[in-house]
Design a protein around this nucleic acid. Structure first.
Lengths: 146, 146
DNA sequence: ATGTAATAGTTGTCTTTGTAACCAATAGGC
DNA sequence: GCCTATTGGTTACAAAGACAACTATTACAT
């Protein structure tokens, strides 16, 4: 195996991605936390339901790459706050359908707008083509299963 | 405020970055975990000491954007395993200098090589120019303080 | 139909993190 | 010098996460 002392952490993509991800989500995290006392997982679940409408915990898990226990707990807290309602599927009683309440939808709409503005600010100064390329690379990396 | 139902999570950069970061570090995480029982923070500290040599906890914190408690605990565990030694600064006795032991350096060299290979695999199929651009965008995003 | 496996979701336990409070030592103002 | 503020680092406790084990229900093979 070649031995390469010149390889720096700062070149290491997972590290760079992590730093970028953390720094770029900090500010937004404060918004959903301060305004609605939500945690990241709760925000994620809310967002998915807001965009895709009625869906099950498993659906969210598959889309968001979130473990089912995280979803279970996030759903619990969102239900307590009356941001969503749970409905048993009557043909398969293991399944629970989740849907935002009107309150939940208001919260979602608010946060979605903040997210959009925040996103605009993040990519400000970058060419559209570069942003598109960035997104596609990130999607490719995200798809890669460890 | 404009109301934009078309804005999707999948367009949201912090989300994409997180997904990419998580997916792309999974495999590597397993390596340092399985081989050396190390956690991410420990790996980060080890890596910094490996690359930059003797430095203090604060130095690492400043470079890696890591909170001092994370560093404190990581250093503790690395010291227990004799991967590093701590030396009080005699002119300012608050400060502690950290340095890898020969064992620590071996571990570092091993993981650095794995990281390099892993990184190569990650960017495989991407043009060098694209990778360079990606890095620079990520660095810019990481610098942004929330 | 009946026993085994699979699936949806929850709970329990242990580990890891976050935050704030805390020492100890130095720096700075007066 | 002396009092207060700052800095480097650790510790304590609560919150969040990982992971396996669990319940309930359905699917599937024979």
């Amino acid at each position: 195996m070649r031995d390469d002392p010149d390889f720096d952490v700062e070149d290491f993509l997972p590290y760079l991605l992590n730093q970028a991800a953390e720094a770029s989500s900090l500010e937004f995290q404060r918004v959903y936390n301060d305004r609605y006392g939500m945690l990241r997982n709760e925000w994620r679940v809310l967002f998915h339901l807001g965009i895709y409408g009625r869906m099950t915990a498993s659906d969210i898990g598959a889309r968001a790459q979130m473990h089912k226990t995280k979803i279970s707990r996030a759903v619990q807290r969102l239900a307590e706050r009356r941001y969503l309602i749970r409905q048993r599927d009557e043909t398969d009683r293991r399944v629970e359908h989740l849907e935002l309440t009107p309150t939940g939808q208001k919260v979602y709409a608010d946060l979605r707008n903040v997210a959009r503005d925040y996103n605009d600010a993040l990519v400000e100064g970058l060419a559209d083509a570069d942003v598109a390329r960035l997104r596609s690379v990130l999607r490719a990396l995200a798809k890669r299963r460890g």
